[in-house]
Design a protein around this nucleic acid. Structure first.
Lengths: 226, 226
DNA sequence: TAGATTGTTAATCGATTAACAATC
DNA sequence: TAGATTGTTAATCGATTAACAATC
């Protein structure tokens, strides 16, 4: 932690890069802190927070050390303060507008999911290619034609899009999203998307998770049966 | 690959242990192979399959090497044969009965998700604690009282349970599942579950995925703004 | 000062990748 | 035999963990 006072990159200050594995756990810590906060906890140790987040305390402290020194030795962490610091680091102190494309069963569920709203995301539009759905209002938001995508993205400055279409439509939707200026995509369609460099895609695949469980389950049950 | 002919563990044969990272990718390869198969492809190289699965070919070959030698040097892989071998390794050559607990928006979507059925899983029961839902039929399956869990698990030999309840109910549901004999849980509730050793839990958290995207998005957009 | 707990170090472990010998 | 592509090796990289010095 020596002072590199006069070197180049000093202006960007807080932008050390945080390992991906740590980034993926920050939201988990954030949620645990919110829970602690709601329970009225003012201060907690790394041991307590780690237990609430389901990780071991060494990992938690190592993770937090990438953000800075927000604890007090001998005491622990101020729950509300640490919560704010993590939220700021993740970037959810302000709201992110998102669009959801594909308003089938899953799209409905996503549109109605209150966890988005409460965690820094605001669904500004629901889009579907099927004109029969354009009458619907889901979770207080009109379902609009897919062709409105570009206009909506511009209007609200949308950077994040959610794809909840069938697999076959997913690549086209992704292309249109990217063309409209979206640079982060959460993909629920069971398809591998190809996108230009600089665009992030995360994939959530329900059946893949079940298959991973099945693999381990098989080994438990039939382990002895050879 | 020397012959350890007379050593102990030889009887369990195919049970070398496969790294977790590889296990998590096997379902991805399986899906890519199914797609290739449907497109009429008979044979493919590691390069082609890797590209269809969205990984690099070195990783793919390394992953497949844990299962055995199912390719032919100079030629590639027989799509249908490799598909079967991977399905067998994962354990989805036969059906796994699953129960879904919590039939809200997400539970509905899950119950209707055709990807489960087609990939080795069969939803044998939908359970909800709310008596008002017990009239409903979702995706051709009756919604039944949560208290029927134990009986259903016994009757169908259910090993895998899906939790789609609110966060507050999740730990109770998990406890009851474990008590009934379920040993693998897919948890959609935004809560950390504690379960006895030997029980596997996987967690899918929609808002966490969005937060990870937001973190990277923030760095892209506001990178220069210091 | 004594007790507690952080933040960091260093060792270990696991995953990725490029390169290539084996072999069809 | 020549060309192609697998399966494996070994080097590298990143993540986890235990231990403890720093410090409240």
């Amino acid at each position: 932690m020596e002072t590199r006072a006069l070197t180049a990159r000093t202006s960007t200050e807080s932008t050390r890069d945080i390992p991906e594995a740590t980034v993926a756990r920050l939201p988990v810590y954030l949620r645990a802190l919110t829970t602690l906060c709601e329970a009225g906890t003012i201060t907690c140790s790394s041991e307590e927070l780690a237990s609430a987040a389901g990780v071991n305390s060494a990992k938690l402290r190592k993770d937090l050390s990438y953000l800075g020194s927000y604890g007090t030795r001998g005491v622990g962490y101020d729950v509300d303060y640490l919560r704010y610091q993590i939220a700021r680091e993740i970037g959810v102190t302000q709201d992110w507008p998102v669009v959801i494309v594909g308003i089938g069963n899953l799209g409905h569920a996503l549109a109605n999911y209150s966890g988005f709203r409460s965690r820094g995301f605001r669904v500004v539009a629901l889009l579907d290619a099927d004109p029969n759905r354009h009458e619907e209002v889901v979770a207080g938001v009109d379902v609009r034609p897919f062709d409105d995508l570009e206009q909506i993205v511009k209007e609200h400055g949308v950077a994040i899009g959610v794809i909840a279409t069938p697999a076959l439509a997913a690549q086209d939707v992704a292309n249109r999203m990217v063309a409209s200026g979206i640079s982060s995509i959460l993909n629920f369609a069971p398809a591998v998307l190809s996108v230009p460099e600089g665009v992030d895609v995360r994939k959530v695949d329900l059946s893949i998770e079940l298959q991973i469980l099945a693999y381990h389950e098989q080994r438990k049950t039939h382990g002895a049966t050879a």
